[in-house]
């Protein structure tokens, strides 16, 4: 399994040179922020009103930027049929999946690290309970990436696979998006963390179940 993690390092090396995925994710995320900051300019004077829309705006940025990243995740493996070469290596096939999850999750984290301060600046908003907000964003992003990588592998060789990915991904990731948005919203409105624990538990269970299922079925997903 550890040998297989070289695939994630290889992807990071390729991305550090090509910067195809990361740049488009960041630009897209910032563009959404700017559009919303203009559209909601009336709210900017009130922190409580900003708090009501903040969660939605942030998660729209993360989900759509993440979808862009997921669309390109397996593209390097399809070019020159590198996926066949990986499948022939003496590594468990689900280590390919694990590597892709690590790679996209890291990209999403970087995008989030850039997006959150930009949100603060554009919406003139001071985050409270930042640690819990961070934990919810981590859990939500992980669940989204876990499902996304599996579907990305499924559709990559399909015709119009890039169109198919969001169509399949967004409904399947609703069980993670809903608690993530609700928990973030509650935290930003200043609700007590204990009243939001049910959402966090739901996120943990979803992440665990989908990760375990994806690790089990990935071998069959990449079988011709």
């Amino acid at each position: 399994m550890l040998k297989g993690l070289n695939i994630a390092l290889k992807d990071l090396k390729i991305e550090s040179r090509a910067r195809e995925i990361f740049i488009s994710m960041v630009v897209f995320s910032l563009l959404i922020l700017i559009i919303f900051s203009i559209a909601f300019s009336d709210l900017l004077s009130s922190a409580s009103k900003t708090a009501t829309v903040a969660s939605g705006v942030l998660w729209i940025c993360f989900i759509f930027a993440g979808t862009l990243g997921l669309n390109r995740t397996f593209a390097t493996e399809v070019q020159n049929s590198c996926m066949d070469a990986l499948k022939m290596c003496p590594i468990p096939r689900n280590s390919i999946y694990l590597s892709k999850v690590i790679f996209v999750f890291l990209l999403m984290l970087l995008v989030e690290i850039i997006t959150i301060p930009m949100f603060s600046v554009l919406f003139n908003y001071q985050f409270t309970a930042i640690i819990w907000v961070g934990i919810v964003i981590l859990l939500g992003s992980f669940g989204f990436v876990v499902v996304g990588c599996l579907i990305s592998a499924l559709v990559i060789r399909a015709r119009a696979g890039e169109m198919l990915l969001p169509v399949l991904l967004l409904p399947l990731s609703l069980p993670v998006i809903i608690p993530a948005v609700s928990a973030t919203s509650g935290l930003l409105r200043g609700e007590d963390i204990f009243s939001l624990m049910s959402y966090i538990r739901l996120l943990v269970v979803y992440d665990f179940v989908f990760f375990a299922v994806s690790m089990l079925v990935f071998e069959y997903v990449v079988e011709d």
């Binding site: 390729i14 040179r17 390097t76 020159n80 066949d84 022939m88 590594i91």
Partner: peptide, 20 residues
């Protein structure tokens, strides 16, 4: 996994990463 490290494959597809 037991036999994969004893098999190599060369195809008309290069199986190479262009950016490496």
């Amino acid at each position: 996994e037991d036999v994969q490290d004893r098999i190599g494959m060369l195809s008309h597809e290069t199986f190479l990463y262009e950016n490496l």
